[in-house]
């Protein structure tokens, strides 16, 4: 009797979650999936087809854009990691407790405004008639304003800036569990600073690095605003291509196919990444 009551309560509480998952995630995706297999025959009649997926591989522009996007997302992830590691190390191990809270808030602060505002903020700083150029001209460092916007490096910087927090937070949480005495023990056993980083800190932080990297990679891959606004004229991002298919070309079938390709290919990349570093997703998630 008791068991029965418990079971009913269990389903009662679980059902909103299941409904939410089903209605808002599963159904639209099934709809999109079906859409991606639809097309038009030469006569203009709707038919089932694999053409939308074929297009991706036949048309070099599409997979080139995807490769480019994936590569840049990886570079972004790597740069974010390189920057986030010392930052989180400082916050966890070196800063005094009071400064720690302050620094964490400082990291969170940019996220109180929308991404659009943040990107515009960068644009005001970096543009040819912007703040940086103004001061550099004033101080005589340069005699011609330089355009710092609209190139790949700026775009990656923007992406790194946007992703920082998502790398720092998991790193902080794994680093908190790193016993200081491990670092000291390594130091005592004649390890240099670099050795300690390589053999103790990074292996210990691996789960945090992996989960942070997955989040940052997916965020960068799925970003639309930053590449579009800061990247300038060469920065075709794969999300933009999906947007274009849906909005500009009215080709929802192609757009849906691209959406699924993005999902599948990014999952494959992450899977390969986990294999190469010999980890599994369950470990990382816990």
């Amino acid at each position: 009797m008791m068991g029965n009551g418990f079971r009913i309560t269990f389903w009662l509480f679980l059902s909103p979650v299941l409904l939410w998952l089903f209605l808002l995630i599963v159904i639209p995706h099934i709809d999109l999936l079906l859409l991606s297999f639809r097309g038009e025959s030469d006569m203009g009649d709707p038919i089932w087809t694999l053409q939308n997926y074929k297009n991706f591989f036949i048309e070099p522009i599409y997979w080139y854009t995807f490769l480019r996007t994936a590569l840049y997302a990886m570079i972004t992830t790597f740069c974010t990691f390189i920057l986030a590691l010392p930052v989180s190390f400082y916050i966890v191990k070196l800063a005094r407790p009071r400064t720690r809270g302050f620094l964490t808030v400082l990291l969170l602060l940019p996220f109180w405004v929308s991404e659009l505002v943040r990107v515009y903020g960068w644009m005001i700083l970096l543009r040819e008639s912007g703040v940086f150029n103004y001061f550099m001209l004033k101080m005589g460092i340069i005699d011609q304003p330089i355009e710092m916007l609209y190139n790949d490096i700026t775009m990656i910087m923007g992406l790194v800036y946007t992703s920082m927090l998502f790398m720092v937070v998991p790193l902080i949480s794994v680093m908190e569990s790193l016993d200081d005495s491990l670092i000291e023990a390594a130091h005592d056993l004649e390890a240099s600073r670099f050795d300690i980083l390589r053999t103790i800190i990074i292996p210990h932080c691996k789960p945090g690095i992996t989960s942070g990297s997955i989040v940052v990679f997916m965020l960068a891959l799925g970003n639309y605003l930053t590449p579009n606004l800061m990247g300038g004229k060469n920065s075709l991002w794969f999300t933009e291509q999906i947007y274009n298919q849906f909005i500009a070309s009215f080709n929802w079938n192609q757009g849906a196919a691209f959406g699924f390709l993005l999902l599948v290919l990014s999952s494959v990349i992450i899977w390969v990444g986990l294999k190469v570093t010999r980890q599994n997703l369950g470990e990382v998630a816990s």
């Binding site: 522009i61 854009t65 480019r68 075709l236 274009n244 500009a248």
Partner: peptide, 8 residues
């Protein structure tokens, strides 16, 4: 398609 090509 042409617009994508130009941008890329």
């Amino acid at each position: 398609k042409i617009l994508d090509k130009i941008k890329a």
